[in-house]
Design a protein around this nucleic acid. Structure first.
Length: 562
RNA sequence: UGGCCCAUGGUGUAAUUGGCAACACACCGGUUUUUGGUACCGACAUUCAAGGUUCGAGUCCUUGUGGGCCAACCA
């Protein structure tokens, strides 16, 4: 067997190059660094998949590090949710770490930078500093405090830490270059005073390090070899390197490996949004019922919707890695969950929009138990018993009084197969005063029982319908979802707010009849409702009230023809 | 009057680093089928533009064009 040759993505090529240039494979180390200020979404899964995927490929450790430097936005609730989601996706981190664990080390390094004249305390307002910073096309000018003495800086910084000053009165800045074409190099802030309790360090600190000063140094402390992030951090790389190179001089004997930042394009999915801030708005304004609403692109939403970890991992794998802006067709995600569930989900029968069928020549009061295969894709899935009787429900759209020959379903005078049961022929129907069909009268052919092996049962008929015995049917609530937004790129419009594209009909609650075997289904169980789609048992389900979510419909070439 | 990044079908990612543009999804058509599902088969692009180098360019060079990111005491 010849190995299929897989091409390397650009990140793998960088790693291969580093390895070829002498980096030891043992020094490879990655990390996934979420800020615990919200729930993870499918976009994060790309970053997770890249770093953990690389970890797997090179047998290298991957840390889960919480970038928790802003106590105003971060909460333990989010830490817990993120850990749950990453674990659920099937990834194992080497160490669970927190940037806040490095506060003291960062402070000590900051003092060294001050002593080297590389950082200073600025005592202006943020507004004054913003103006001095200039614009992308105009150079900035220096702060009047830029040349404070080392002694004064040291004193002020220590007193900032001691809590002597109010928020907004002083900051620590790196002394770099106010005329740099890169705005981030114009003396970026390293520390601000924040008198807020932190979810891990409590009130120990009143100065908190900024992202740029924290992130790269956390990578360095953990001896991360390749720090991978999304494209919008590209301009930060120059600053990342500046901090890293200075700190390296202080600590190279202890921490010999300076990390390297590289950037990839983030994932965008059609018909949804990927911004934490905007997702939060959907939650807060009640557009959805929480972060785990099955319409949300969050991991918890997809989990509740019935997506499997494998399907999401396969999706990420298929999507690939590059530096191009992209919008992935949500149809690819749907394909991935169908692909998985087709092989693993047991088939059952459920009728979502029922109309009654009476089989006039089937003896009144008689019932029989029929055998149904659980999954034609899986020989080991076994079979189950399905009760049959004189009155059954079928899908309203599966019957027409008259129809052309493209309609393979039940119509007057025509025969169809009832899945796992008998052939029936429609003879007449009853209607209410509005002309709605209430009952369809049929006759069945007793010689056509499924699995009986009779020549009659092997007759070719074009249509096969799913059904549920009326007497045995179990009532269940089914929640069917449509896309949350009506536009392919809801937040891609400069003149329109994403909220304008919300689909008012993204949730439909249906009272359905399902076969009795589902009575014992447990929360999270996944099924294929034959001819309809894949469904799972929602968290809201109870012993008395079954609730199903429609994960995704089956491919439906009939719907397209119509 | 800036800096940086990107450009391959409807979508996303490839192309042994200069040698027959491939794979997946979507779409369209067909075969099989006790799911109008699955499976299988077929159709679908002269690689943003114009020049240049070369026997040969998606790949290298030049100039354009288009898109993205950067002016939070956010990450």
């Amino acid at each position: 067997m010849s190995e299929e040759k897989k091409s390397l993505n650009f990140l793998e090529q960088i790693i291969e190059e580093d390895l070829a240039n002498g980096m030891s494979k043992d020094d490879l180390r990655f990390r996934f660094p979420p800020e615990p200020n919200g729930y993870l979404h499918i976009g994060h899964t790309k970053a997770i998949g890249i770093s953990f995927g690389l970890g797997q490929k090179y047998n290298a450790p991957v840390n889960l590090r919480f970038d928790d430097t802003n106590p105003a936005k971060e909460e333990q609730e989010y830490v817990d949710a993120i850990k749950k989601d990453v674990a659920w996706l099937g990834y194992q981190w080497e160490n669970e770490l927190y940037s806040s664990d490095y506060f003291q080390q960062l402070y000590d390094w900051a003092v060294l930078l001050i002593k080297d004249g590389k950082a200073y305390v600025d005592s202006q307002t943020s507004e004054e500093m913003r103006i001095q910073k200039g614009t992308p096309t105009e150079a900035g000018v220096s702060s009047p405090y830029r040349d404070r003495s080392v002694e004064e800086n040291l004193d002020l910084f220590e007193r900032m830490k001691a809590g002597e000053f109010d928020e907004g009165t002083h900051v620590l800045r790196a002394k770099i270059d106010m005329t740099s074409p890169n705005m981030l190099m114009r003396d970026p802030l390293m520390y601000r005073i924040l008198k807020k309790s932190h979810h891990r360090t409590g009130n120990n600190w009143v100065i908190y390090p900024m992202y740029d000063w924290t992130h790269g140094e956390s990578d360095y402390l953990e001896q991360i070899s390749h720090s991978l992030c999304s494209l919008e951090f590209k301009p930060h790389r120059e600053l990342y390197n500046w901090f890293r190179d200075h700190v390296y001089e202080y600590s190279k004997s202890e921490y010999p490996n300076p990390p390297k930042q590289r950037e990839f394009s983030r994932l965008n999915l059609s018909y949804t949004i990927m911004s934490k801030r905007k997702l939060l708005k959907l939650v807060e304004e009640g557009v959805v019922n929480g972060w785990d609403d099955p319409r949300m692109p969050t991991i918890s939403g997809l989990r509740r919707r019935g997506y499997t970890p494998a399907s999401i991992r396969n999706f990420i794998e298929t999507v690939g890695v590059s530096k191009r802006e992209n919008i992935i067709d949500v149809a690819l995600l749907e394909f991935k969950i169908r692909e998985d569930l087709n092989k693993t989900a047991n088939r059952v029968m459920a009728v979502l929009d029922p109309v009654k069928v009476v089989i006039d020549n089937y003896p009144e009061g008689q019932e029989e138990i029929l055998i149904a295969e659980n999954n034609p894709e899986d020989e080991n899935a076994g079979s189950r018993e399905v009760p049959f009787s004189r009155e059954i429900y079928i899908e309203r759209e599966d019957f027409r009084e008259e129809a052309n020959k493209k309609f393979f379903r039940l119509k007057l005078g025509k025969e169809v197969r009832l899945k796992n049961a008998y052939f029936i022929t429609a003879n007449s129907c009853e209607k209410d005063e509005h002309g709605n069909i209430t009952v369809i009268h049929c006759t069945y052919d007793p010689l056509t029982k499924s699995g009986s092996g009779t020549p009659e049962s092997q007759r070719k008929v074009k249509g096969t319908l799913h059904w549920v015995s009326a007497k045995h049917a179990v009532k269940a609530e089914v929640r069917a979802y449509d896309r949350l937004f009506l536009n392919e790129a809801p937040d891609g419009h400069k003149d329109k707010d994403f909220m304008e594209f919300i689909n008012p009909n993204s949730l439909e609650k249906i009272e359905a009849f399902v076969e009795p075997s589902l009575q014992t289904a447990k929360i999270g169980d996944r099924f294929q409702f034959q001819r309809l789609g894949y469904f799972n048992v929602d968290d809201d389900a109870t012993q008395e009230n079954l609730v199903f979510n429609k994960t995704v419909g089956l491919r439906d070439s009939w719907a397209k023809k119509k």
